[in-house]
Write a protein that binds this DNA or RNA. Structure first.
Lengths: 110, 110
DNA sequence: CATTCATATGAATTACTGTTCATATGATAA
DNA sequence: TTATCATATGAACAGTAATTCATATGAATG
């Protein structure tokens, strides 16, 4: 007979956030789980930038950058403004800096 | 002729961490980018747990949990101890709490 | 030593995701 | 309006990653 954990399970279960919240949380971290997106966000820490400047900075195609910017925008991590033909992207939320900085700290404290 | 960003690019480029570091950073966030792993870590916030207890808590197979625990262990986010047949896993680093808590805060401040 | 429980692991499968390519949209200038 | 630049987007492709299944390892117990 397998061993019993019902007491522990009950206690831990009551402390665990809902599945939906935990799923939202992993979805949030997914945004930072790609080096292209992290690079884009890091670049935007310095200054707003247009799509082609980001593409040039990262040495990637305009299309690839555009796709990633869409993901970041859908998640409300970045926003944009249009100036003629050019579209400038910028951080829409300063919380992003904190999250990335926290990850960074973990890395250097190894 | 496409427009010029050389000044901006130069400035941003000097501020950007190396590709390797940015890649390590996204690799770190990848660990939190799966809801199963986030659930496991959250559970371990409360108490160390054996593999089968985690599997039962999350309603998943022992094998699936074992595979994920290996990923977390390889990344030094969890460690384990053996007690007879049972292997208990626990957080090896309290930094994990901070990173997850930061993500959580972002979610609720929406 | 054979059996059982707990865990680990390799291979296969399936689902997802990032990039590319081709093309569309949108804006400006000639 | 036509041409050009900047960006967006859909489809296809390729690589990745999570789960399952079968099985192996490792420890305790009879």
């Amino acid at each position: 007979m397998p061993h019993d954990h019902s007491e522990l399970l009950h206690r831990v279960k009551t402390e665990l956030p809902t599945d939906e919240l935990l799923s939202d949380l992993s979805d949030l971290f997914k945004l930072f789980a790609d080096s292209t997106r992290v690079k884009i966000l890091y670049a935007l820490f310095e200054s707003e930038m247009c799509v082609c400047a980001i593409a040039e900075l990262l040495g990637m195609t305009q299309s690839a950058i555009s796709h990633q910017l869409r993901i970041l925008k859908d998640a409300n991590l970045v926003a944009n403004r249009r100036a003629g033909k050019t579209v400038y992207y910028f951080l829409s939320d300063d919380h992003v800096r904190t999250i990335i900085a926290q990850g960074f700290e973990h890395l250097i404290e190894e």
